[in-house]
């Protein structure tokens, strides 16, 4: 690292904005070393190559109004809340940059200096007394590298567990799978208690190996960040549509009969769909599968297609809402 570290804050807890801010710095501030510390309000962040639907507990996400976003770095899904602090290092991609040590060492040292028994573990984690307190991921962009990580300081463990509690049988794909770990909060290991703002201020100093210079994006740069947020990170196409090709199988019993649906999804579009069931139908289900094939694999798009049918003729006592819940675990 060079002599000066540019320190930035995003001024937001909106995950789509924060990821856009980080991507903007990675791809446009092409010289110097940057450190960003930031937080997301209740959010599941999935890895670049994950199937989003398979990583989230849809019902829980709806119930607790949890944001869902996709990042551009690798690895598995994580849950963030305001008890979690994220750090991003952005610097030149030099020899050995991809070695964990270069970026995790300062974080491990900063935690150890607070009296914690912190250690780097496996490829991307930092553990304290056997519990994961930090997960990291990286992205290479031309001659620059982004290394970012979470720091669980005082997160709600029930929310972490609930948000990521998924049905492993429903989706099959080649995308990156998440690995579940036993997590811990940094605050619970501290000898002397600190608040999150104290911890944040401490890290600003501890993670900068040289002079920290408070920096900010210009008004023009912030406009670009907002544009990137709106055109990429806020869109269904990026967050869900970009999932690697996958198959879904779902089977549910409703008062009107059993319903089993299988789908093949690629580029966010329904490539094939099969509907089985013992409901009382008077018209061929093929009309519905034809209408849904080629349509975006999302509840809004399915609902728009289903509107044109008198569903009771095709699905007997099964309602549109039940049909959508069988496929998506949510209705519109």
């Amino acid at each position: 690292m060079e002599q000066v570290v540019h320190y930035l804050e995003t001024g937001s807890t909106d995950p789509a904005y924060n990821l856009a801010f980080e991507e903007y710095v990675l791809t446009n501030r092409c010289e110097g070393d940057y450190l960003i510390l930031w937080q997301n309000d209740n959010t599941i962040v999935v890895g670049q190559n994950q199937n989003t639907a398979a990583e989230i507990n849809r019902a829980f996400v709806d119930e607790h109004h949890i944001h869902v976003v996709r990042r551009t770095t690798g690895g598995g899904a994580v849950y963030h809340d305001l008890g979690n602090l994220n750090y991003s290092f952005i610097t030149d991609d030099e020899e050995g940059s991809l070695h964990l040590e270069r970026f995790t060492r300062p974080v491990v040292d900063a935690l150890c200096a607070l009296g914690l028994q912190a250690e780097a573990s496996g490829r991307n984690d930092i553990l304290v007394e056997g519990r994961k307190v930090s997960g990291t991921a990286q992205r290479v962009f031309k001659s620059r590298i982004l290394h970012h990580g979470t720091l669980l300081f005082d997160s709600n463990p029930d929310m972490v567990a609930g948000a990521l509690n998924v049905d492993p049988a429903k989706y099959q794909s080649k995308g990156r799978k998440s690995v579940r770990s036993r997590i811990g909060n940094i605050r619970s290991f501290l000898k002397e208690d600190m608040t999150l703002p104290d911890f944040w201020a401490y890290l600003t100093r501890a993670l900068s190996s040289a002079d920290v210079r408070k920096d900010r994006l210009t008004e023009n740069e912030l406009r670009q960040v907002r544009k990137l947020k709106e055109e990429k990170y806020d869109t269904w196409e990026w967050t869900y549509g970009k999932s690697p090709r996958y198959n879904m199988t779902s089977k549910q019993r409703w008062p009107g009969g059993g319903l089993e649906i299988r789908a093949e999804v690629s580029q966010g579009v329904t490539q094939a769909l099969t509907i089985y069931g013992d409901f009382m139908a008077t018209r061929p289900i093929q009309d519905i599968t034809n209408a849904l094939t080629g349509c975006q694999f999302r509840p809004e798009a399915f609902a728009a297609q289903l509107k044109q049918f008198g569903l009771q003729e095709y699905l007997g006592g099964i309602t549109e809402e039940e049909f959508l819940k069988t496929v998506f675990d949510t209705a519109v």
Partner: peptide, 29 residues
């Protein structure tokens, strides 16, 4: 660990991103 393959029929431009690959360490274009 994953190759995010491009799509047949898409245009590519010399020097621009065509797809990305993910290793245990990082995603790279």
């Amino acid at each position: 660990v994953y190759v995010n393959l491009p799509v047949a029929g898409d245009d590519v431009v010399a020097g621009e991103t065509a797809c990305d690959v993910e290793s245990v360490k990082a995603v790279s274009d």
